[in-house]
Design a binder for these strands. Structure first.
Lengths: 143, 143
DNA sequence: AAACACCCTGAAGCAACTACAAGGTCAAGT
DNA sequence: ACTTGACCTTGTAGTTGCTTCAGGGTGTTT
């Protein structure tokens, strides 16, 4: 099958397929006489796997690690479990960060209930007066 | 004050300060005879405001809009309130997305409780079998 | 005069794509 | 035979919010 068909089968774009190939996530395809990429069922499976992992918020690094583990089918799957647990940890950490942010934003928002002059706006004063924090180190690759 | 002092006052790096200047978020500084940037109290205030907004997850676009509003102090602050409400909406949307992701991940994780062969791992099978979804349009700039 | 901390500019790198630009291929219709 | 249109090819640049680096200048101290 051609790249467009593969892309449709995994519900992504041809550009994304080519990008994954360049990244080494998707193995290179055979080429037809006219230099078109030519894919088989294994490519569809692999690409769908990658897209599913991405939909779950995994980074390319994590997916790459999973793919390598998958390519040694008779090995133990402890590393797979670990990797997933760590990823769940990233998601939890990010939810926690955003929840705290949400509370801070609500507090600032509460400082202005009615429309008045900008110079007297509680929100702007709140934003200016906040304790400026150093950027904490990232807990996850999730933005 | 020199750029390093300004950066310290707002707890960021000199590179970040120069970057904000290039972006137009921070006005350009006067220069000394030796071409060093020379900042005053107004710059400290502005930079701290920017860093506080960033710490609350706002995008540069949002901050830029706030700064413009702030520069017209006798105008009404309705737009400020709206902007903040929208930003809170972004955060809520992202928390919701991540919470759903979290549930999906937990479901997949539950498919493998004990270590066994990769080829029989419920997690990998779950990841392969998932309904591949099209990437939904972004609800927010928060990753 | 040398050492060291600080400043300058400009370019490149990160993640995970997306969006061109400029061209080649192929099947269908006239 | 020719054209249209949909598809394919490569390569490069843009997105966001910085960080890092290279290669150099300045200023104070010893």
């Amino acid at each position: 099958m051609k790249i467009g068909e593969l892309a449709k089968a995994a519900r992504c774009t041809t550009e994304t397929v080519r990008f994954y190939e360049k990244e080494g996530l998707l193995p290179e395809a055979h080429r037809t006489a006219s230099n078109y990429r030519d894919y088989g069922a294994a490519h569809v499976e692999r690409l769908r796997f990658i897209r599913n992992c991405r939909a779950l918020g995994m980074a390319h690094e994590e997916i790459r690690a999973l793919l390598i583990l998958m390519d040694a089918p008779q090995q133990g799957c402890g590393a797979v479990n670990t990797l997933l647990d760590e990823h769940i940890g990233h998601v939890d950490a990010r939810i926690e960060e955003l929840t705290q942010l949400r509370a801070q934003l609500a507090a600032i928002r509460a400082q202005c209930q009615t429309e008045h002059q900008v110079s007297a706006c509680g929100i702007l004063h709140g934003l200016a007066a906040m304790e400026t924090e150093e950027k904490p180190p990232r807990h996850s690759h999730l933005g």
